[in-house]
Amino acid sequence: MRAPEAEWLGSLAVSRLQVVSGKGGTGKTTVAAALALALAREGRRTLLVEVEGRQGIAQLFGTEALPYEERKIAVAPGGGEVFALAIDAERALLDYLQMFYKLGSAGRALKKLGAIDFATTIAPGLRDVLLTGKACEAVRRKDKAGRFVYDHVVMDAPPTGRITRFLNVNDEVAGLARFGPIHNQAQAVMSVLKSPQTAVHLVTLLEEMPVQETADGIEELVAAGLPVGRVVVNMVRPHHLDEEALRAAAGERRAEVARALSRAGLGGARRGGLAERLVEPLLTQAAEHAGRVELEREQRGVLEGLGLPTYELPLLGAGMDLAGLYELATELRKQGDEE
């Protein structure tokens, strides 16, 4: 029923678990959702998971808060489906206890005792183990016919500053719990996370701080042996004027600009005329634009130095909505195909 082998999105489609991180404010939830849509091509099925309890996916898709339950939230062009799940650490722990130990009632007793609360909020790393564990379970899950239930799982992950610790916590936990089921569980999760089945993407803007964090984040991921995927440059603005034209406009061609504005019906070009008075503020804005373009060029250079495949997504002027999300998904597919 579904396409057997992926020959699109380049090598990106190889990874069945796609983790999307990025500095706060770079739009990682949006990129994760667009990626889930892009991967749900030709009848494929993807699961989009969030792990920080922010209900960002529900807000993006304009639905009510997601329960702890996988539910379909979007249909991709070509019949693919996107499911979504907000993973809740406490529920994941109770599930886990039930699934592996048949601890239905004991689980409730543990909850009453405060043990579940302890495990999911205070006990070091357990929360993260549960969250990544649940995502890995979805990656490995098969139906009765032995096929994977989801072709891809896309995770809207914690921000760049915490991503390596978040993904690597199983290693630490496996070391801390040297034997026993937690140890085994942590090791099993790590075997998925450190394999080519996983790709960790970092979303950035063409600004200094996010780019610096991206560079630092990649270094940390590599040092921890976690597979780095793509850099996604988000909210890229179009460039309208080169610097030379701008200098000319601000200098010797100022009066010409005023007359052009006037010709376009925006008032008189003479000194004090409406068009003439537009020149100064328009030039100020253009100078700011040029400054930003210059900064962006520098930051692009830094990103190129990282030597990773890069996708670029445009800034959507009207703000983010469902139509914009599909637009970004199309853009990701296109760039994936060209890769």
């Binding site: 309208h240 034209a245 010409e256 052009a260 328009l282």
Partner: peptide, 9 residues
Amino acid sequence: ITAGLLRLH
């Protein structure tokens, strides 16, 4: 140039 300025605006 002017069209560029206007688009930026």
